[in-house]
């Protein structure tokens, strides 16, 4: 169990019902509780392609229902489900990239949004900076700084040590800042701190 985490009684009850009786109602309740979090992460991995993201969610639920009977509650259910979604999304994203080019820079294949209005410039620049990160760094930064997961949760999701998550986050932040500073996007703000 993750530090300080408390088993969600609703999740436990619903999983028990689903595993015991292949209960549609219990599954739908679990689906509705956790799919938004799974889709949000999948969305990032497949570069905002809705069809791909929802396919990832479907595949993740299929895998999850196969594994639920052996789920040991060593992490929160959502952490476990998002981890499965990440694995599915990674495979899909890699397969997609492989069909385009094996050696191309990640930032070149990420479909960036069209140039936004001036008021949205920070989000647009951060999006580009994150897209340029190596995959491992990018994953940790997105999970930690974008979605707010803890290092312990990320370690569970990605199958790495918590310390690895921390060090990758530090390098990812450094890389993002360097790129944004070079582009003149955050230089003034950070100097004023």
């Amino acid at each position: 169990m993750e530090p300080n985490s408390v088993p969600d009684l609703d999740d436990a009850r619903l999983v028990k019902r689903f595993v015991r009786g292949r209960d549609e109602g219990a599954f739908r309740a679990l689906y509705r509780a956790h799919t938004p979090a799974m889709l949000a992460v999948a969305w990032r991995y497949v570069d905002g392609d809705r069809i791909d993201a929802e396919d990832v969610v479907q595949e993740a639920w299929i895998r999850a229902t196969e594994k639920l009977p052996s789920f040991r509650w060593e992490s929160a259910l959502r952490t476990w489900l998002v981890g499965i979604a990440i694995n599915c999304a990674r495979n899909r994203a890699r397969g997609k990239r492989a069909t385009q080019s094996r050696d191309v820079d990640l930032a070149d294949v990420v479909e960036l949004p069209a140039a936004p209005a001036a008021a949205d410039i920070a989000t647009y620049d951060v999006e580009r900076a994150v897209a340029r990160l190596p995959e491992g760094y990018r994953e940790v930064l997105i999970l930690h700084d974008v979605f707010g997961y803890t290092h312990d949760e990320i370690a569970r999701m990605l199958g790495v040590e918590s310390g690895t998550s921390k060090s990758q986050l530090s390098r990812a932040r450094s890389s993002v800042r360097r790129w944004l500073t070079e582009k003149g996007r955050i230089g003034h703000e950070r100097r004023s701190e």
Partner: peptide
Amino acid sequence: ALRSLAGAPDP
């Protein structure tokens, strides 16, 4: 700015 990237459509 980073949190603003969390936006995803509803399923």
